[in-house]
Design a protein around this nucleic acid. Structure first.
Lengths: 240, 240
DNA sequence: CGACGGGTTGAGCCAGCTCAATGGGCGTGG
DNA sequence: CCACGCCCATTGAGCTGGCTCAACCCGTCG
């Protein structure tokens, strides 16, 4: 019995019972393939669907007047892409696939009915939303205040814990196909500087990056460097 | 018949009818005084109440290991401080009054009942939440990518429109008692550099700041400098 | 096999930082 | 009523993390 990544994630936000999990799994439609680089919606569009990540990595981004791209959120398996977004007439940002993804659609009405009928699921979705907001706040601090090495370290810490929460880490390692230009758009530094920063973290033995696999030999040390405080992810206490 | 700032704000998010506005006004309790510098809750607390700004300015902030403060959100009259926040066991940030404020409390249960019974009000609150998130994304871009003068200009543009939306601007001018150290915590630059940047904007005649009053003689010019795109505030089109 | 995109490295530059000092407004206590 | 302390605003001078420009290497793909 396969449990969707969405259900797996939401379990951290509320004490879901088996029937809740079943209901969530039922509502998540068949995932569709989205190729790396493809956009799901663009700034100015009206988006009527709710999407849920199934595999791969997608991002929210904004284009700047000088043509550069600022990534303002990363969507990993189990993440809602755009809960409630149909309320807005016009999107204020774009969303695109960073790597090849599979993404499910949920009917907005069907989801609303589910949430109204099942308080635990509703609670879990509100939790998910609060966590997304908390991540944005933490990114604001990360981008605004930390030096480039701490910034990168912080991102890796977050990715590790978020992927760990849906069972996508193994042996201190996770898979995210982030190229240096993408890391640059994420962290607000230049690709050249990403390279130097990454090299420095590697030299210190804090992370190893190879072929899209990131390994964090000693999480505590990286956490210390980054000034990482996992509170904002609001995950139940797991020593992992 | 006084309309609360909350109702005034929510009117932008849904087509509220008079009875909706009345219901919102009824639920907003008597505002309590909060002195500048006082905290509403701290990182690690559990917060059980929903607060609504009535007057003054408050902020969400995080303290950094080096003792400096990063402000991650500004709350203006009509803003919810912590909708749904009681779901989280532990706050990931603190909230404090920037200036002397008056803030109302709403019972969380009472609010939930109101939202369940009145879809238009519910829609307006979800809208408000989506806008808060959009502001965070835009701040992320602002802090991460723009030079200090554009950054400051962008903040002023946003404050002008947000205050304008609740009727708190007059003659191109609004009142927000932001000291240079507070602007520094908001923008992620040093107070010394805030001073230089502010002086430069003043010299160019783009803004004048005096005694907590900010005047923007020509909004279009400031908008242009800031690269400001008001889409993210999701306000109905008003030529203001 | 040429084009293209990513990764790597070097060299010089600059926006914003640090350190430092001065003046003004205001509340507090003598 | 004055003196003191405190915080904010302002200005100068030198420093530096991350930027720009510019190569070069490599693997992949048409």
């Amino acid at each position: 019995m396969p449990i969707s990544f969405l259900a797996r994630k939401l379990q951290h936000g509320a004490n879901l019972v088996d029937s809740d999990v079943d209901r969530i799994d039922q509502i998540v439609g068949e995932p569709r393939d989205v190729l790396a680089g493809q956009d799901l919606f663009l700034h100015g569009d009206h988006s009527a669907f709710v999407h849920v990540m199934n595999s791969g990595t997608a991002c929210r981004y904004k284009m700047l007047p000088d043509g550069s791209r600022a990534i303002v959120a990363l969507m990993l398996p189990g993440d809602f892409c755009d809960l409630h977004i149909s309320i807005l007439a016009e999107m204020d940002h774009s969303m695109g696939a960073v790597s090849d993804c599979t993404i499910s659609r949920i009917s907005s009405d069907e989801l609303d009915r589910l949430l109204d009928a099942h308080p635990r699921i509703k609670r879990a979705c509100i939790w998910s939303n609060l966590v997304d907001e908390a991540i944005l706040r933490e990114w604001l601090v990360n981008i605004g205040r930390r030096s480039s090495d701490r910034r990168l370290a912080h991102l890796f810490c977050e990715l590790y814990l978020r992927l760990n929460a849906v069972g996508l880490t193994e042996d201190h390692t996770f898979h995210v196909p982030l190229t240096q230009p993408i890391l640059a758009d994420l962290l607000g530094i230049t690709p050249v500087h990403v390279q130097r920063t990454l090299a420095s973290l590697r030299r210190s033995g804090l992370v190893s990056v190879q072929g899209g696999y990131v390994r964090i030999p000693d999480f505590a040390v990286l956490e210390e460097l980054a000034g990482f405080d996992r509170t904002y992810l609001h995950l139940p206490d797991m020593t992992g």
